[in-house]
């Protein structure tokens, strides 16, 4: 291979890296820019990621999908894409209304992956971690022990980003 062609190739490889990083930022930030805010119930716990430092692991009620919600003949595959429709409950929080392997035409829905394929199915949406400095992550875990509210930004295609986690305020 000619040296000049190698240099052009290496330049393109650097450009590819920049493109990947910018693409990832765009993909991750898109729901923040264009999405609708919804609130769902969550309970955090504090582990540590090998790469990304401390975080609060978030368990969602909408992460557990009862069998009757997903009306399919066969058993779903692990990793299979599932669309979970949400509806607002009386307390201002969103809960599961139904689920389908096909993209719904309307309403608020999240795009997730099935990680446990026997009932109740477990679904992950890519919003299960809230990264924060160690002290903040531990405090978050303490403050939200009895439950918290995750602020999510959802696009029309069901892609979702985690905006913030706040303490749950009981309406009496």
């Amino acid at each position: 291979m000619k040296r000049s062609r190698t240099i052009i190739g290496l330049g393109l490889a650097v450009a590819l890296q920049l493109f990947v990083v910018l693409g990832m930022v765009g993909k991750a930030a898109l729901p923040m820019w264009t999405g609708t805010e919804i609130r769902v119930k969550t309970v955090p716990r504090d582990p540590r990621s090998m790469f990304r430092g401390n975080y609060a692991r978030l368990n969602y009620e909408i992460g557990s999908l009862p069998k009757e919600m997903l009306k399919i003949e066969r058993r779903p595959r692990r990793g299979e894409v599932v669309y979970v429709s949400l509806k607002e409950n009386g307390d201002g929080l969103f809960g599961i209304a139904g689920a389908s392997l096909d993209k719904p035409d309307e309403g608020v829905f999240l795009r997730g992956h099935i990680v446990k394929n026997y009932p109740p199915y477990q679904v992950e949406y890519g919003i299960e971690a809230f990264f924060a400095p160690k002290t903040k992550a531990l405090k978050l875990e303490q403050d939200l022990r009895s439950g918290g509210v995750a602020l999510l930004m959802v696009t029309d295609s069901g892609r979702v980003a985690l905006k913030d986690v706040v303490p749950k305020v009981d309406k009496k």
Binding site: F51, R57, G126, L162
Partner: peptide
């Protein structure tokens, strides 16, 4: 850093 800033999954 992108994954950390945007809380991209566990």
């Amino acid at each position: 850093l992108v994954a950390q800033i945007y809380h991209l999954g566990e």
